[in-house]
Simulated assay, not measured.
Amino acid sequence: MARINAQNQYYKDLNKLIRSCGESDIELDNVMGQRFIACGMKGKNFLIHGVPGNALGAYLDGSSIEVTENAQDAVGDTMNEGRIVIHGSVGDACGYAMRGGRIYIRDCAGYRAGIHMKAYKDKQPLVVIGDAAGSFLGEYQAGGTIIVLGLKQNGKPPVGYFCGTGMHGGKIYLRSDYPPFDLPPQVSCREAQKSDLDDIRVKISEFCSIFNMDKEEIMSKHFLVLEPNSANPYKQLYTNI
């Protein structure tokens, strides 16, 4: 394993060091806001101590990234394959346009998580958020799955305003006793059925293992499913005006 001290390093210099490293396992210490770490990389395993800056793992193509603290905006932007684990919270636009891979966030996500998220051929992207997400979750979502577990929300909807706006594919699972109050009419909300619960159980297994959480306790609560409403679809490309 290679170990790199990122303290006081300019983001371009740090990324040059990372790309020139021949080791497959790389540990980064004292990361504080450096952008574009591990962008487009494949076949590498990163352990990051600190708070990486914007676009961590953008265009990721098969590498694994684990962050021991929080991360800033655009984690996994246009991610193709691989895994990103955040032992904390992330900023806005996590999983922007991702088309494959998995992002696991122990705590919260900011605004617009999963915006433009899509499936691609046999790739099915997955974002699991342990606690809550900000407004515009799943905006323009075209595929893949977002799961928000609301672990500290006591049954309240674990999302902000305008959840699913522009959604035209994929699914959002919410661990909540009742729906968000302002869902657009183009998004349907229903009770999770057995097939949905089986799907959730599979998709949160790795999340629970990583963060040492009780899967059965999580699954014992109420889940809702958000999907595009085929009876009232968006009449234009993204929004119904």
Rank of each mutant, 00 (worst) to 15 (best):
S205V: 03
S63R: 00
M41K: 02
D73Y: 03
G82A: 02
L237P: 09
L237G: 09
D29I: 11
P185I: 12
D73W: 02
I218Q: 12
R83N: 00
R112W: 15
G134M: 09
M98H: 00
S135K: 04
M32N: 07
D61F: 07
H116F: 13
R175Q: 12
C189D: 12
Q193C: 13
D25W: 05
Q7V: 01
E69K: 07
Q72M: 05
K16F: 00
V67H: 07
E206A: 14
L224G: 06
N54R: 13
M41E: 05
G138S: 12
G144E: 04
V31F: 05
M219F: 00
F211L: 06
G62I: 10
I204L: 10
D92L: 08
Y111N: 13
S209Y: 05
E81L: 14
Y11D: 10
E81I: 01
Y10W: 12
R112E: 13
G155W: 02
M41A: 01
H87I: 02
M98W: 00
N45E: 08
S209N: 14
S188V: 14
R35W: 13
V85L: 10
P157E: 02
V225T: 13
S64F: 07
R3I: 09
M32C: 05
Q34H: 11
R102V: 09
L151C: 06
Y234N: 13
Q153I: 03
N229W: 06
G57T: 06
V187C: 14
R3K: 14
F223M: 14
A231K: 10
M98P: 01
F211D: 08
S188P: 11
H116Q: 13
R83W: 00
E66M: 01
D107S: 07
Y238G: 11
G50N: 03
V127K: 04
A58K: 02
K221Y: 12
I218E: 05
S24N: 11
D214R: 13
M213E: 11
I84R: 03
I105K: 12
A71F: 06
Q34C: 03
M219T: 03
M117G: 06
A74F: 12
E217K: 14
V31N: 06
